[in-house]
Every structure is written in structure tokens, then in C-alpha cells.
Simulated assay, not measured.
Amino acid sequence: MDIEFFRNFCIAKPGVTEELPFDNETLAFKVKGKIFALTHIDNFVSVNLKCDPEEAVKLREAYNSVKAGYHMNKKHWNTITVNDDMNDKELCRWVNHSYDRVVSGLPAKLKKELQSQ
């Protein structure tokens, strides 16, 4: 997977924006203002994704490329190394999970706005 595929996959989801909220290198994907994915804009070697805490531990145990979230709440975030061994389909599934986790925590009004998009 390359940065353009990842970017297009993320921004195709309803209500998603992309921003550089921390610096000129860290690209954040947000749904209704809440981050669900982060990556380095120029050096696409890893992504940070939100995850159910129990699932996060299982993924870390099952995959060498999945670690506790770098500079993130390690209970709720994983950092996934993107390399030739990483299955694009799995990574897309994890992006979907992250997006869904964030959406599930949104207020009802924002969820309703997403449904109409």
C-alpha cells in the first residue's frame, strides 16, 4: 500500500477531512473533527489507528507489524508498520474499524449528519 491509496481510502469515507494539526509532516484523518488515522505525509512507513482495547492487544500479539500506539494512548491506539508483508486488505479492515470506533463515540446529532451524507 502506498500513501495515495491510503489517503484515498480514508477520505472516501463519509464526513472525513484531512489536516496537518500538529506539524507539516503528520497527516491526520478526522471524521467530524475526531482523529481516526495518522501517518507521516512524506515517509509512509507506519499508520496510527484507533482500536478496541481488547482487539488492540490481540493484533499486537498476532502481528509483528502492530505495536502499541506511538505517542498515543496505548490502550486505544495501534501503530502499524506498512511494508511489503502487510496485507492491504487487513490494513483497510483496520482503518474501517478505527473509523467505526470514532463514529460510535460521536454525539447523536453528528451521527445523524453522517447518515445523510
Rank of each mutant, 00 (worst) to 15 (best):
M86W: 02
V66A: 15
M72I: 09
V31S: 09
S65Y: 15
K58A: 12
F22W: 15
M72Q: 08
I80W: 09
M1Q: 00
K13V: 05
D2I: 04
S65N: 13
D100M: 08
N96P: 03
R60P: 00
P107S: 02
I35D: 05
E54F: 05
G69R: 01
N48F: 06
R93T: 13
E61G: 12
R60S: 07
N43L: 06
N8G: 10
E61W: 03
D52V: 02
K50D: 11
E61V: 02
H97M: 12
F29G: 01
K50C: 04
I80E: 03
Y63A: 00
V47T: 05
F29V: 00
P21H: 05
I11F: 11
D42M: 05
Y70P: 02
V47S: 10
I3D: 06
S98I: 03
D84M: 09
T26M: 13
C51D: 01
K109M: 06
K112H: 09
T17V: 14
L106N: 05
V102P: 08
R60W: 11
N78I: 12
S104A: 15
K67T: 14
H40G: 00
T26L: 12
N8E: 14
F36M: 02
D2C: 04
P107M: 06
S65E: 15
R93N: 13
F36L: 00
H40L: 10
F29K: 00
S116M: 12
G69D: 04
Q115W: 07
Q117F: 13
F44N: 09
P107R: 03
Y99N: 10
E18Q: 13
H71Y: 14
H76G: 01
D2A: 08
D84T: 13
K112E: 15
T26V: 10
C51S: 15
E90W: 13
A12H: 04
D52M: 01
K34Q: 08
I3C: 06
V102M: 02
C10H: 05
V103A: 03
P14G: 08
V31Q: 07
E25L: 13
T79F: 14
K112T: 15
V95W: 10
G105E: 12
V103E: 03
L20Q: 03
V16C: 04
N78Y: 12
F5C: 02
F44L: 05
N64C: 08
H71N: 13
F9V: 06
P21D: 09
A56L: 13
K32F: 08
V47F: 12
D100V: 02
M72A: 10
K58I: 07
T79M: 06
A68Y: 04
V95G: 01
I11M: 03
I3K: 14
E55A: 12
L38N: 05
V102Y: 11
